[in-house]
Design a protein around this nucleic acid. Structure first.
Lengths: 150, 150
DNA sequence: CCGATATAGATGCACTTGCATCTATCTGGG
DNA sequence: CCCAGATAGATGCAAGTGCATCTATATCGG
Protein backbone atom coordinates (compact mmCIF):
# COMPACT_ATOMS: atom_id res chain seq x y z
CA UNK A 1 0.00 0.00 0.00
CA UNK A 2 2.89 2.34 0.69
CA UNK A 3 6.06 2.82 -1.27
CA UNK A 4 8.58 0.04 -0.79
CA UNK A 5 10.66 0.64 2.30
CA UNK A 6 12.05 -1.23 5.24
CA UNK A 7 10.98 1.34 7.77
CA UNK A 8 7.42 1.34 9.01
CA UNK A 9 5.60 4.62 9.36
CA UNK A 10 4.54 5.89 12.77
CA UNK A 11 0.91 4.84 12.32
CA UNK A 12 2.04 1.37 11.26
CA UNK A 13 4.16 0.92 14.37
CA UNK A 14 1.34 2.13 16.53
CA UNK A 15 -1.14 -0.18 14.81
CA UNK A 16 1.16 -3.12 15.42
CA UNK A 17 1.66 -2.26 19.08
CA UNK A 18 -2.07 -1.96 19.53
CA UNK A 19 -2.69 -5.17 17.68
CA UNK A 20 -0.52 -6.93 20.24
CA UNK A 21 -2.26 -5.32 23.19
CA UNK A 22 -5.75 -5.71 21.81
CA UNK A 23 -5.16 -9.32 21.00
CA UNK A 24 -3.74 -10.07 24.42
CA UNK A 25 -6.65 -8.35 26.12
CA UNK A 26 -9.34 -10.01 24.05
CA UNK A 27 -7.72 -13.41 24.19
CA UNK A 28 -7.38 -13.10 27.95
CA UNK A 29 -11.09 -12.39 28.30
CA UNK A 30 -12.09 -15.24 26.05
CA UNK A 31 -9.79 -17.84 27.56
CA UNK A 32 -10.78 -16.82 31.05
CA UNK A 33 -14.46 -17.22 30.27
CA UNK A 34 -13.95 -20.63 28.73
CA UNK A 35 -11.81 -21.78 31.63
CA UNK A 36 -14.33 -20.53 34.17
CA UNK A 37 -16.98 -22.58 32.41
CA UNK A 38 -14.78 -25.65 32.62
CA UNK A 39 -14.41 -25.78 28.85
CA UNK A 40 -11.30 -26.40 26.79
CA UNK A 41 -9.04 -23.98 25.12
CA UNK A 42 -9.84 -21.75 22.19
CA UNK A 43 -7.50 -23.78 19.99
CA UNK A 44 -9.76 -26.78 20.46
CA UNK A 45 -12.73 -24.77 19.31
CA UNK A 46 -10.91 -23.51 16.25
CA UNK A 47 -9.98 -27.01 15.16
CA UNK A 48 -13.43 -28.40 15.82
CA UNK A 49 -15.07 -25.59 13.90
CA UNK A 50 -12.83 -25.99 10.87
CA UNK A 51 -13.40 -29.72 10.81
CA UNK A 52 -17.11 -29.33 11.22
CA UNK A 53 -17.19 -26.90 8.32
CA UNK A 54 -15.16 -29.30 6.22
CA UNK A 55 -17.86 -31.91 6.57
CA UNK A 56 -17.61 -35.65 6.15
CA UNK A 57 -14.53 -35.58 3.92
CA UNK A 58 -12.55 -33.96 6.65
CA UNK A 59 -9.31 -32.12 6.15
CA UNK A 60 -5.67 -33.01 5.78
CA UNK A 61 -3.48 -31.82 8.63
CA UNK A 62 -1.64 -29.39 6.44
CA UNK A 63 -4.89 -27.81 5.29
CA UNK A 64 -5.97 -27.28 8.84
CA UNK A 65 -2.58 -25.90 9.62
CA UNK A 66 -2.84 -23.39 6.79
CA UNK A 67 -6.39 -22.41 7.68
CA UNK A 68 -5.59 -21.74 11.31
CA UNK A 69 -2.00 -20.60 10.85
CA UNK A 70 -0.83 -23.03 13.51
CA UNK A 71 2.68 -24.40 13.68
CA UNK A 72 3.07 -27.86 12.26
CA UNK A 73 4.28 -29.42 15.49
CA UNK A 74 1.68 -27.62 17.55
CA UNK A 75 -1.11 -28.87 15.39
CA UNK A 76 0.30 -32.38 15.42
CA UNK A 77 0.16 -32.50 19.18
CA UNK A 78 -3.10 -30.63 19.46
CA UNK A 79 -4.69 -33.24 17.23
CA UNK A 80 -3.12 -35.93 19.43
CA UNK A 81 -4.99 -34.48 22.38
CA UNK A 82 -8.23 -34.06 20.51
CA UNK A 83 -8.02 -37.59 19.19
CA UNK A 84 -7.19 -38.94 22.64
CA UNK A 85 -10.29 -37.19 23.94
CA UNK A 86 -12.34 -38.74 21.13
CA UNK A 87 -13.29 -35.49 19.45
CA UNK A 88 -11.32 -35.97 16.25
CA UNK A 89 -10.60 -39.06 14.17
CA UNK A 90 -7.39 -39.57 12.22
CA UNK A 91 -7.32 -41.82 9.17
CA UNK A 92 -4.52 -42.46 6.69
CA UNK A 93 -5.03 -40.56 3.48
CA UNK A 94 -5.97 -42.62 0.44
CA UNK A 95 -4.13 -40.40 -2.05
CA UNK A 96 -1.03 -39.68 -0.01
CA UNK A 97 0.65 -42.33 2.05
CA UNK A 98 2.33 -39.74 4.24
CA UNK A 99 -0.87 -37.94 5.00
CA UNK A 100 -3.68 -37.98 7.48
CA UNK A 101 -7.31 -37.14 7.03
CA UNK A 102 -8.89 -35.56 10.06
CA UNK A 103 -12.59 -35.62 10.74
CA UNK A 104 -14.67 -34.42 13.64
CA UNK A 105 -16.58 -37.02 15.64
CA UNK A 106 -20.05 -36.85 17.09
CA UNK A 107 -18.53 -36.05 20.45
CA UNK A 108 -16.44 -33.31 18.86
CA UNK A 109 -19.54 -31.72 17.39
CA UNK A 110 -21.26 -31.92 20.74
CA UNK A 111 -18.33 -30.28 22.45
CA UNK A 112 -18.21 -27.46 19.95
CA UNK A 113 -21.92 -26.90 20.40
CA UNK A 114 -21.51 -26.72 24.16
CA UNK A 115 -18.63 -24.28 23.85
CA UNK A 116 -20.35 -21.87 21.52
CA UNK A 117 -22.68 -20.04 23.96
CA UNK A 118 -19.81 -19.32 26.32
CA UNK A 119 -17.51 -18.39 23.50
CA UNK A 120 -20.14 -16.16 21.90
CA UNK A 121 -20.71 -14.27 25.12
CA UNK A 122 -16.96 -13.87 25.50
CA UNK A 123 -16.63 -12.47 21.98
CA UNK A 124 -19.38 -10.01 22.71
CA UNK A 125 -17.65 -8.92 25.90
CA UNK A 126 -14.17 -8.79 24.43
CA UNK A 127 -14.98 -7.34 21.02
CA UNK A 128 -18.59 -6.86 20.07
CA UNK A 129 -19.64 -4.39 22.70
CA UNK A 130 -16.88 -1.99 21.71
CA UNK A 131 -18.09 -1.49 18.17
CA UNK A 132 -21.01 -0.78 15.94
CA UNK A 133 -21.51 -3.35 13.22
CA UNK A 134 -20.01 -0.99 10.68
CA UNK A 135 -16.92 -0.48 12.80
CA UNK A 136 -16.53 -4.19 13.36
CA UNK A 137 -16.79 -4.65 9.63
CA UNK A 138 -14.10 -2.07 8.98
CA UNK A 139 -11.84 -3.61 11.58
CA UNK A 140 -12.33 -7.10 10.19
CA UNK A 141 -11.61 -5.96 6.65
CA UNK A 142 -8.41 -4.24 7.67
CA UNK A 143 -7.24 -7.21 9.71
CA UNK A 144 -7.91 -9.61 6.87
CA UNK A 145 -5.33 -7.79 4.79
CA UNK A 146 -2.64 -8.89 7.22
CA UNK A 147 -2.89 -12.53 6.36
CA UNK A 148 -4.60 -12.90 2.98
CA UNK A 149 -2.32 -13.26 0.01
CA UNK A 150 -2.65 -10.07 -2.03
CA UNK B 1 -21.33 0.66 21.20
CA UNK B 2 -24.19 -1.70 20.55
CA UNK B 3 -27.20 -2.42 22.70
CA UNK B 4 -26.47 -4.64 25.65
CA UNK B 5 -26.58 -8.28 24.63
CA UNK B 6 -24.67 -11.46 25.15
CA UNK B 7 -24.64 -12.43 21.53
CA UNK B 8 -22.11 -10.87 19.22
CA UNK B 9 -23.19 -9.69 15.80
CA UNK B 10 -21.85 -11.38 12.68
CA UNK B 11 -19.35 -8.60 11.95
CA UNK B 12 -18.09 -8.82 15.53
CA UNK B 13 -17.49 -12.54 15.31
CA UNK B 14 -15.73 -12.10 12.02
CA UNK B 15 -13.60 -9.28 13.38
CA UNK B 16 -12.56 -11.46 16.29
CA UNK B 17 -11.69 -14.42 14.08
CA UNK B 18 -9.63 -12.16 11.88
CA UNK B 19 -7.96 -10.56 14.85
CA UNK B 20 -6.73 -13.99 15.86
CA UNK B 21 -5.47 -14.87 12.40
CA UNK B 22 -3.95 -11.49 11.72
CA UNK B 23 -2.17 -11.49 15.02
CA UNK B 24 -0.82 -14.98 14.54
CA UNK B 25 0.41 -14.14 11.05
CA UNK B 26 2.05 -10.87 12.01
CA UNK B 27 3.56 -12.27 15.18
CA UNK B 28 4.93 -15.21 13.25
CA UNK B 29 6.66 -12.90 10.80
CA UNK B 30 8.10 -10.71 13.49
CA UNK B 31 9.33 -13.51 15.73
CA UNK B 32 10.82 -15.34 12.78
CA UNK B 33 12.77 -12.27 11.71
CA UNK B 34 14.09 -11.67 15.19
CA UNK B 35 15.06 -15.31 15.61
CA UNK B 36 16.81 -15.38 12.24
CA UNK B 37 18.85 -12.39 13.33
CA UNK B 38 19.82 -14.20 16.52
CA UNK B 39 17.93 -11.71 18.65
CA UNK B 40 15.66 -12.36 21.62
CA UNK B 41 11.96 -12.56 21.77
CA UNK B 42 9.50 -9.77 21.22
CA UNK B 43 8.57 -9.86 24.89
CA UNK B 44 12.09 -8.82 25.75
CA UNK B 45 11.81 -5.85 23.46
CA UNK B 46 8.51 -4.81 24.94
CA UNK B 47 9.88 -4.82 28.44
CA UNK B 48 13.07 -3.03 27.49
CA UNK B 49 11.14 -0.36 25.62
CA UNK B 50 8.75 0.30 28.48
CA UNK B 51 11.60 0.53 30.94
CA UNK B 52 13.59 2.79 28.69
CA UNK B 53 10.60 5.08 28.33
CA UNK B 54 10.14 5.10 32.08
CA UNK B 55 13.62 6.56 32.50
CA UNK B 56 15.84 6.49 35.53
CA UNK B 57 13.04 6.05 38.05
CA UNK B 58 12.11 2.78 36.47
CA UNK B 59 8.81 1.04 36.94
CA UNK B 60 7.21 -1.22 39.50
CA UNK B 61 6.52 -4.73 38.29
CA UNK B 62 2.80 -4.25 38.50
CA UNK B 63 2.99 -1.12 36.36
CA UNK B 64 4.89 -2.95 33.69
CA UNK B 65 2.42 -5.76 33.95
CA UNK B 66 -0.50 -3.39 33.40
CA UNK B 67 1.21 -1.58 30.55
CA UNK B 68 2.02 -4.74 28.64
CA UNK B 69 -0.97 -6.80 29.76
CA UNK B 70 1.31 -9.66 30.77
CA UNK B 71 0.38 -12.22 33.37
CA UNK B 72 1.87 -11.62 36.76
CA UNK B 73 3.78 -14.88 36.86
CA UNK B 74 4.95 -14.54 33.30
CA UNK B 75 6.35 -11.11 33.94
CA UNK B 76 8.00 -12.27 37.12
CA UNK B 77 9.92 -14.93 35.28
CA UNK B 78 10.58 -12.82 32.23
CA UNK B 79 12.20 -10.25 34.47
CA UNK B 80 14.22 -13.06 36.06
CA UNK B 81 15.64 -13.88 32.67
CA UNK B 82 16.26 -10.27 31.73
CA UNK B 83 17.97 -9.65 35.05
CA UNK B 84 20.05 -12.81 34.70
CA UNK B 85 21.17 -11.54 31.31
CA UNK B 86 22.05 -8.20 32.84
CA UNK B 87 19.56 -6.13 30.90
CA UNK B 88 17.31 -5.17 33.76
CA UNK B 89 18.05 -4.30 37.38
CA UNK B 90 15.72 -5.08 40.25
CA UNK B 91 15.79 -3.03 43.43
CA UNK B 92 13.52 -3.14 46.45
CA UNK B 93 10.99 -0.33 46.43
CA UNK B 94 11.49 2.42 48.96
CA UNK B 95 7.78 3.12 49.44
CA UNK B 96 6.52 -0.43 49.39
CA UNK B 97 8.37 -3.21 51.13
CA UNK B 98 6.68 -5.84 49.00
CA UNK B 99 7.58 -4.15 45.78
CA UNK B 100 10.34 -4.06 43.23
CA UNK B 101 11.57 -1.24 41.11
CA UNK B 102 12.76 -2.28 37.70
CA UNK B 103 15.19 -0.28 35.63
CA UNK B 104 16.87 -0.90 32.34
CA UNK B 105 20.64 -1.21 32.31
CA UNK B 106 23.13 0.14 29.82
CA UNK B 107 23.31 -3.31 28.29
CA UNK B 108 19.54 -3.44 28.09
CA UNK B 109 19.45 -0.16 26.20
CA UNK B 110 22.13 -1.44 23.86
CA UNK B 111 20.18 -4.61 23.21
CA UNK B 112 17.00 -2.72 22.47
CA UNK B 113 18.88 -0.48 20.08
CA UNK B 114 20.30 -3.50 18.26
CA UNK B 115 16.87 -5.10 18.04
CA UNK B 116 15.09 -2.11 16.62
CA UNK B 117 16.26 -2.20 12.99
CA UNK B 118 15.30 -5.84 12.66
CA UNK B 119 12.05 -5.30 14.48
CA UNK B 120 11.22 -2.24 12.42
CA UNK B 121 11.75 -4.09 9.17
CA UNK B 122 9.59 -6.90 10.47
CA UNK B 123 6.78 -4.50 11.36
CA UNK B 124 6.97 -3.01 7.92
CA UNK B 125 6.77 -6.46 6.36
CA UNK B 126 4.06 -7.76 8.64
CA UNK B 127 1.90 -4.66 8.92
CA UNK B 128 3.14 -1.47 7.34
CA UNK B 129 3.25 -2.52 3.73
CA UNK B 130 -0.38 -3.57 3.79
CA UNK B 131 -1.74 -0.14 4.64
CA UNK B 132 -1.67 3.50 3.87
CA UNK B 133 -0.91 5.69 6.85
CA UNK B 134 -4.57 6.63 7.12
CA UNK B 135 -5.62 3.01 7.14
CA UNK B 136 -3.01 2.13 9.74
CA UNK B 137 -4.31 4.99 11.82
CA UNK B 138 -7.89 3.76 11.54
CA UNK B 139 -6.85 0.23 12.43
CA UNK B 140 -4.85 1.39 15.42
CA UNK B 141 -7.70 3.52 16.71
CA UNK B 142 -10.16 0.68 16.46
CA UNK B 143 -7.81 -1.76 18.16
CA UNK B 144 -7.14 0.63 21.00
CA UNK B 145 -10.80 0.46 21.94
CA UNK B 146 -10.37 -3.20 22.79
CA UNK B 147 -8.14 -2.60 25.74
CA UNK B 148 -8.55 0.97 26.91
CA UNK B 149 -10.97 1.47 29.75
CA UNK B 150 -13.99 3.30 28.33
C1' DC C 1 -3.00 -0.57 67.98
C1' DC C 2 -4.77 -5.04 66.25
C1' DG C 3 -6.54 -8.50 63.48
C1' DA C 4 -8.75 -9.34 58.92
C1' DT C 5 -8.19 -8.81 54.37
C1' DA C 6 -5.97 -7.21 50.21
C1' DT C 7 -1.93 -6.62 47.29
C1' DA C 8 3.10 -7.44 45.40
C1' DG C 9 5.69 -10.67 43.70
C1' DA C 10 7.83 -15.65 43.68
C1' DT C 11 7.49 -20.54 42.89
C1' DG C 12 6.43 -25.96 42.51
C1' DC C 13 4.35 -28.72 39.33
C1' DA C 14 2.06 -30.18 35.25
C1' DC C 15 1.30 -29.05 30.65
C1' DT C 16 2.39 -26.69 26.22
C1' DT C 17 5.50 -24.75 22.92
C1' DG C 18 9.73 -24.19 20.11
C1' DC C 19 13.48 -26.08 17.92
C1' DA C 20 15.78 -29.43 15.59
C1' DT C 21 15.58 -33.54 13.61
C1' DC C 22 13.58 -37.99 12.25
C1' DT C 23 10.97 -41.30 9.32
C1' DA C 24 8.17 -42.18 5.52
C1' DT C 25 6.39 -41.19 1.29
C1' DC C 26 6.11 -38.54 -2.97
C1' DT C 27 7.82 -36.17 -7.23
C1' DG C 28 10.71 -34.84 -10.96
C1' DG C 29 15.12 -35.20 -13.77
C1' DG C 30 18.08 -38.25 -15.99
C1' DC D 1 13.48 -47.18 -13.21
C1' DC D 2 16.20 -44.79 -9.76
C1' DC D 3 18.10 -41.37 -7.09
C1' DA D 4 17.97 -36.49 -5.25
C1' DG D 5 15.32 -33.51 -3.36
C1' DA D 6 10.81 -31.99 -1.43
C1' DT D 7 6.83 -32.62 1.60
C1' DA D 8 3.71 -34.78 5.46
C1' DG D 9 3.67 -35.51 9.88
C1' DA D 10 5.87 -37.17 14.54
C1' DT D 11 8.98 -36.61 18.40
C1' DG D 12 13.08 -35.88 22.09
C1' DC D 13 14.53 -32.36 24.65
C1' DA D 14 14.85 -27.74 26.48
C1' DA D 15 12.37 -23.68 27.58
C1' DG D 16 8.12 -21.14 28.51
C1' DT D 17 3.30 -20.96 30.38
C1' DG D 18 -0.79 -21.67 33.44
C1' DC D 19 -2.51 -22.69 37.73
C1' DA D 20 -2.58 -22.73 42.40
C1' DT D 21 -0.47 -21.37 46.23
C1' DC D 22 3.02 -19.19 49.18
C1' DT D 23 5.43 -15.40 51.74
C1' DA D 24 5.73 -10.81 52.97
C1' DT D 25 4.11 -6.41 53.50
C1' DA D 26 0.39 -2.98 53.40
C1' DT D 27 -4.15 -1.13 54.48
C1' DC D 28 -8.45 -0.64 56.65
C1' DG D 29 -12.27 -1.15 60.12
C1' DG D 30 -12.86 -1.11 64.72
Amino acid sequence: MRAMTDRPSEPAVLAWARLERAHRAALGTVEARLARAGLPDLAWYDVLLELERAGANGLRSFQLQAALLFQQYNLSRLVDRLAAAGHVARAPSAEDGRGLVLTITRSGRALRRRMWPVYAAAIEEAVGRHFSDAEAQTLGDLLARLYSRP
